[in-house]
């Protein structure tokens, strides 16, 4: 039985390309990347946390160096499948009192996981979250996109099919101003299987996790960027209203990825939130 359990653990770790870094004695921070990227996107933010926290990173199945063979359209046909993986990672590493940091769609995956196992997570840090990307004409909810926009995204993904297909991907020329950047990172960053990316895009951008919000009992931080195409200010407000124990922080950073474009400001906001008593 012990062997079987060990095999299950290593299969989860392999499936999601789980990596652990930082201070082994510190509290656990688990980072979940969003659509279109992989765990490398946390790279600029991590130095602010690795001294004090045990940092756990992973790739969603289909992204980065995860095991694409583990992809299953039925399981990953809803965000629940991704939440299940996240919980399995916690179980495999026997994590407790986890500070779960989720970007974009993974912020909502984090919310689902926190509802399913409320005792597992001490805090949720939701970076540029949105519970629904499309507008809902029935109740006037503003998500920012129409269904046609999302269809357009799927077309865009198709257009980049060959660029994302492993064997055909173009190699970016080295940037002389960032010579230290490892060759493999340049060529593999945010690489994703194009067919899986398309399905993940559909699942992500047509998801509606609003009904989950009321059930989240874990304290949460909402990081709202300015000028975020994917999460307009109305969405941050909506989340703040519906998530109990939530703190909304507006970042100066523009765009959808403040941890990339403004890592210091993002880290400071998270640290302040974590320092405050729950």
């Amino acid at each position: 039985m012990v062997e079987a359990a060990t095999a299950a653990v290593s299969s989860v770790i392999r499936r999601n390309n789980v990596t652990v870094t930082g201070n082994a004695e510190g509290p656990v921070m688990l980072f979940a990347h969003g659509f279109g990227c992989d765990q490398d996107m946390w790279r600029r933010l991590l130095p602010y946390f690795t001294d004090d926290y045990r940092v756990v990173l992973f790739d969603h199945v289909g992204a980065g160096r995860s095991d694409a063979a583990a992809y299953n359209r039925a399981k990953y046909g809803t965000l629940d499948g991704y939440a299940a993986d996240l919980l399995e990672i916690c179980a495999a590493l026997e994590l407790q009192d986890v500070i779960l940091v989720g970007h974009s769609v993974s912020a909502m995956i984090a919310a689902i996981a926190a509802v399913q196992e409320p005792g597992l997570f001490s805090r949720l840090v939701l970076v540029a979250p949105s519970p629904r990307y499309t507008d809902d004409p029935d109740d006037g909810y503003v998500g920012g996109f129409s269904h046609a926009d999302i269809e357009g995204l799927l077309d865009s993904l198709d257009s980049n099919y060959f660029a994302w297909a492993e064997a055909l991907a173009p190699m970016a020329m080295a940037n002389p101003e960032q010579p230290g950047l490892a060759e493999d990172l340049r060529s593999s960053f945010c690489r994703t299987n194009p067919s899986i990316a398309r399905h993940f895009a559909r699942v992500t951008f047509l998801s509606d996790t609003r009904q989950v919000l009321d059930e989240v009992g874990t304290s949460s931080l909402i990081l709202q960027c300015s000028d975020d195409l994917l999460a307009p200010p109305e969405v941050g407000d909506y989340l703040n209203r519906h998530l109990g124990h939530s703190t909304l922080v507006h970042l100066q950073a523009t765009g959808h990825c403040p941890h990339v474009s403004a890592p210091e400001a993002t880290a400071r906001a998270i640290q302040q939130y974590l320092a405050a008593s729950p």
Partner: peptide, 26 residues
């Protein structure tokens, strides 16, 4: 178009930020 915008925001900008370059994005 919006679809390309989403892709640019979610994929290209972080890649530029982390890896410093993107190549042949359609």
């Amino acid at each position: 178009p919006v679809g390309d915008q989403i892709l640019y925001s979610t994929h290209c900008i972080p890649q530029l930020g982390i890896a410093g370059a993107v190549s042949e994005v359609a």
